[in-house]
Design a protein around this nucleic acid. Structure first.
Lengths: 135, 135
DNA sequence: CTAAATGCAAACGGTTTGCAATGCT
DNA sequence: AGCATTGCAAACCGTTTGCATTTAG
């Protein structure tokens, strides 16, 4: 993944393209498995020995503000992060604990009487048994 | 709400109908606003001065095991609990922070290719602007 | 030069654990 | 008596805060 590209993206959002921010952004782009802050920290600290978890949190908060990433609450007590892309739901297998991304079409989630509600985000988490564990 | 009824329910699930359990169950039945463990504790400690939060957690874990309640992750860092009932989604207003229960019909959430996945729970959280704040 | 970003250490807060006391059958 | 439940105190752990240092424009 090209660093120049990342710098461009960050500048678009008017946030300073510092080295930690570039690396965290690249990590998120390349690791689409809903990493935790700890995952990101662990994944980067080898090549950035002075990186602190505070910076990971600061950066993620900044990315959240500008809408570059969204935070997921997939059941456990830690937040998970995902670069914003096409809408999709998540399926967590209760047997193997794997988390699947599930695409979905335009679903009508607001019944009659709720027309005035404006949806900005949809978080759909399904739990059950995945196709592998169902066999 | 009738205590006898609660005792019956708990016995159905083969869990001992102790006083704390009965009270916590009643609290959940009567407070359908997705209370936190702290909410439940605060709501009961006056009439049960020796109640501990550990017991609230123990009891909720027990209720979760047997499927009497479900745990919700509505964005904040604490879990919220709800007696299992009809399926509904939640709408959290980003302006006033109120959480609405939204009924939904049978929505097809698994697209083609995912027919083998078995859904046991659906957690649908919508975020946006509620009808009051939209005006 | 100045404002923003970094990162260490300590605090925070919801939840869990260890374990002794209590209660039920 | 024997096993489950309760509840205090302490540990845990993900996240936040205070603040001094460093960095970028």
């Amino acid at each position: 993944m090209d660093s120049i590209e990342v710098v461009q993206t960050l500048l678009t959002y008017e946030i300073k393209p510092s080295y930690p921010r570039i690396q965290i952004y690249k990590y998120l782009k390349e690791n689409r498995n809903h990493p935790t802050a700890q995952d990101i920290y662990s994944g980067l600290v080898n090549e950035m020995p002075t990186l602190s978890k505070t910076t990971v949190y600061n950066t993620l908060d900044r990315f959240l503000e500008i809408g570059l990433v969204i935070a997921l609450n997939l059941d456990e007590n830690e937040k998970r992060y995902d670069i914003v892309t096409d809408e999709h739901s998540h399926f967590k297998c209760q047997v193997c604990n794997q988390i699947y991304d599930i695409p979905y079409d335009n679903i009508e989630l607001l019944p009659k009487g709720y027309e005035e509600f404006q949806i900005k985000e949809k978080h759909i988490l399904l739990k059950g048994i995945c196709e592998k564990c169902a066999k």
